[in-house]
């Protein structure tokens, strides 16, 4: 029993629990849509007019699947 207790009393399980809570509770697609809107700057300069002004983390958008098609169908 002390052995099992020793194994369980590690941060590892806490980290796992946090990862599970986040993965169960967070609607990642909704976050992605919100981020897409924000990064594309529609709250500031109108619809997609500011791709050159530093608001867009273009690499982020590309690497996270925010494509023109995604924008068309979700944003």
């Amino acid at each position: 029993m002390p052995f099992i207790k020793n194994i369980l009393a590690r941060n590892f399980w806490l980290w796992i629990l946090v990862a599970l809570i986040f993965s169960w509770t967070i609607n990642e697609k909704l976050c992605m849509i919100e981020r897409g809107k924000y990064l594309l700057g529609i709250f500031y300069n109108g619809f997609f007019q500011n791709s050159r002004d530093g608001m867009v983390y273009s690499d982020y958008l590309k690497s996270h699947g925010i494509t023109h098609e995604f924008i068309k169908s979700n944003i």
Partner: peptide
Amino acid sequence: QSGGLGERMDMSY
């Protein structure tokens, strides 16, 4: 509609 942390943050940031 806006201003949530999910809109502003991703762990990768």
